[in-house]
Design a protein around this nucleic acid. Sequence first.
DNA 1: TTGAAAGCGCTACCAT
DNA 2: ATGGTAGCGCTTTCAA
Lengths: 325, 325
Amino acid sequence: MVTIKDVAREAGVSVATISRVLNDNGYVGSDTRKKVMEAIAKLNYSPNEVARSLYKRESRLIGLLLPDITNPFFPQLARGVEDELSRSGFRLLLGNSDENVQKELDYIQTFVQNNVVGIISATNHVDYKIYDALKLPLVLLDRTSEDYPAVYSDGREGGRLAARTLIEKGAKRITLVKGPAHVKPAQDRFQGAIEELSQADIDFSVLSSTSYSFEEAQGWAEELFEKFSDTDGVIASNDIVGIAIIHEALKLGKKIPEDLQIIGYDDIPQSSLCYPTLSTIRQPAYEMGRQAAQLLIKMVKKEQGIEHTIQMPVELVERNTTRKE
Amino acid sequence: MVTIKDVAREAGVSVATISRVLNDNGYVGSDTRKKVMEAIAKLNYSPNEVARSLYKRESRLIGLLLPDITNPFFPQLARGVEDELSRSGFRLLLGNSDENVQKELDYIQTFVQNNVVGIISATNHVDYKIYDALKLPLVLLDRTSEDYPAVYSDGREGGRLAARTLIEKGAKRITLVKGPAHVKPAQDRFQGAIEELSQADIDFSVLSSTSYSFEEAQGWAEELFEKFSDTDGVIASNDIVGIAIIHEALKLGKKIPEDLQIIGYDDIPQSSLCYPTLSTIRQPAYEMGRQAAQLLIKMVKKEQGIEHTIQMPVELVERNTTRKE
DNA sequence: TTGAAAGCGCTACCAT
DNA sequence: ATGGTAGCGCTTTCAA
């Protein structure tokens, strides 16, 4: 390992001088600077971030906590975060919590132990106490909060929009699939849908799905048609479930969207690749990730007048599981 | 921040003693140990990993370099890596390279600067020189290599299997979709398929797709049917492309699998959720991630008799885009 | 404009 | 069995 001392020796100056040119502060004579630059290049030196971090008590690392990167909504978020972060030279320490408080605690702890300069958390099973004790800038992602800065999309409006769309397009016996109770955004969209549905002259039923995993989605879909076989409009708790429902409906010989309309939530990439393509409420996941990263960076830099929460708009994406006019 | 000194003061012993109980080495009297434990608990102390890392010249961090977490094959890999790594107390520094050599270099550099104890790389646009200079344990993932330890699945056999399956199931005019030339595993499966196809009495054509992105997959699908409209069997370069092809075929009114059989590659989660469900060659992505992590950990621990490469088996998953006997 | 040296929090060696 | 202390690689005073 080549250290600052080696560079100092090579350039014939002190380590203090090397540090000055590295960080571009303090006075350095132009010929001295040149010598130093040459030595750095010659030895192919790059400073040890760990030593830096120890002294300054802060690294260039940011902790990102996700429920599960394997759920197709999150890679987009993660990518948005990373792209924005790396523009400012920050790197990502990644953890999957599986909505498990213990794992969440463990990750938060190692983030702190590694001097991360801030944390972005997209978990739902949040134990507030963890975060209250934290001295670090924190941004909640895909999650509303009055207590902490947060970036999320308008779930209630999304739910309303989904319901309104199905109503307008003539569905008469709507089934609303509710997501897991502990997942806050799932509840928001559910409430929004209920609201809209309640105001309309329309029959509807609620099916409760308690997870979002691929494996179980098919189970919910089967259950849905067993319990509500005559439904002609389904508001899915998210796109994964929506796609599973398409699948199951076709298996049962239903015509989409003639017999049955389906609307999903999220607009994950595969929603435009399934058949028929899934109409859905789009959350701008990548953009949400970017915004969260931007917000966090501002907090880290202690900029003034930072937004406390950023609500992103949702949007109806009409594809082929809903009727054209 | 509470440091080892605070704990020492609280417990009325020296920092050396604290360090001993922390690392469980050297002699510590049982009552002293007890006092120390109490002080640690009382102050809610947890050691600064950065200071540790600086002294020991190695952290508990591992760098994971992926082409793009947004591609649905990779979250599985990443999760396998993480789950295995975290069992041994390691944490993940994550980077997406976009197959861009400069980004790859940047990430590798910051990995090193942060004292990572090893690197797992799943990139294809590898600049060997980067890795040659590395003093760190390195495992290549989803990638064959004679020069470095690697974990990958048997792409050639996978390609053969895909072709054999279509031939056996009676496809007569097969179209083979070739993946991007710079993606090594894509070439392996392509070669395998060519091999098998060449040995059979069968007509086939090759369509070259130069990317794997969702956005472009549809384009390849359209192109495929423009150029080879009478094909009755498609070997897709991966599942994303396979799903796009299903989609396009249905749009054109083709019956699957009667008129057209399709076989994908990877077995990403959504392949069992599309309609009809996609027959495919499964790569055990999660397991590959785990194996890579295990291998790396062994290297880090300098265990003896470590495998140099691990080839994982591929497997035909028969679903509904191929005919039943 | 430059250098010497203290110190970030920890580990490990050498004393005792 | 325990304590003192040097030193990991760096940044930042303070002096010169």
